[in-house]
Amino acid sequence: MINVKELHKSFGHNEILKGISTHVEEKEVVVVIGPSGSGKSTFLRCLNGLEAATSGEIEIAGMMLTDPKTNIHKLRQHVGMVFQQFNLFKHLTILENVTIGPRKVKKIATEEANRVARELLAKVGLVGKEASYPDELSGGQQQRVAIARSLAMGPDVMLFDEPTSALDPEMVGEVLQVMKTLAIEGMTMVVVTHEMGFAREVGHRVIFMDDGLIVEEAAPKTLFSNPQRDRTKSFLAKIL
């Protein structure tokens, strides 16, 4: 589903990603962990073309992202993304937030888009909020809308960049629960998170990144209980 080869990314002279290679299978849930500034967000943003790779190859959802001939907008229809700050469209209602992509990008009729959106909002536990505006919702509710908004495009892969980091502790659970349901239903997911419980319970594989490189990757149990590298050990010691 995702195939990354020797991905490099620099901002000016500052090299942030220093050669990332990895592979994500269909229906696999990969959790990315690592210290602040290690390049996790940059890596994720490269996967849907929000950042252009400096060099290397990314194949995702059957398309070569790094091929200049690839239609990036076509590709993004297959790759959903959920942001730390939710980024709901402030001027649109909850229902419109979820339908605007299908309506304007996929040219789906409004009634059909509304029907799908209501289903998705029900799925993330937000029935009755259709007419509200984002700033009337709690952080946890907003993040669940953001997930529904991505799902409405019918993606093959979902990318999550610290989806619970901006939430009050009591709202973290409801968002993780939605993500867990998605994972069980077979969604291919790449999740940057500090929620080790989620990584352990839902993740199939954990990638530990540091300083722009993948230091170690393994099944959660293996990585958490028996890390091989010193850098992984000292990172885990700090957060567990």
Partner: peptide
């Protein structure tokens, strides 16, 4: 906010749609 534009891009809007909507 830049995040608004990025969210629009992430649901596959092109430059025109992002501006317009």
């Amino acid at each position: 906010d830049r995040g608004q534009k990025e969210a629009a891009q992430s649901i596959a809007m092109n430059g025109f749609q992002t501006m317009r909507y």
